[in-house]
Amino acid sequence: MGINILGAFNYWVVVVLMMIGLYIVITHNNLVKKLIGINIFQTSIFILFISMGKISGGTAPIITGTNTVYSSPLPHVLILTAIVVGISTTALGLAIVIRLYHAFGTVEDDEIQQEIE
């Protein structure tokens, strides 16, 4: 059992990172920190995908004749796309935060909510 838990350590990392990310998003009052939380959250998913493609002992899928075990390249490609999506989201989020700062003079969630009401 213990071996099993250690053997799946990458998934543990995924789960822990995911929870940290979500926790930041939910609890932090500062909008920039919320975005950071989102980023951590997304990173955990990237790791999830990458570790799926990994086969122990496998190399990049280039046929050289010496290796017969390859890691699947597809998750990497997918994650490249997902990273792009994540960056766009962060960029847009930061842009909105800057405009929020100009409009409200603060980036604290509760202060903005007070101003709105």
């Binding site: 909008l31 989201t89 847009l92 989020g93 935060v97 405009r99 929020l100 409009a103």
Partner: peptide, 15 residues
């Protein structure tokens, strides 16, 4: 206020 609504939507939507 639309900025705040958009940000809220962004956080929710991204999750």
């Amino acid at each position: 206020r639309c900025l705040y609504a958009a940000f809220k939507y962004l956080i929710f939507g991204t999750v």
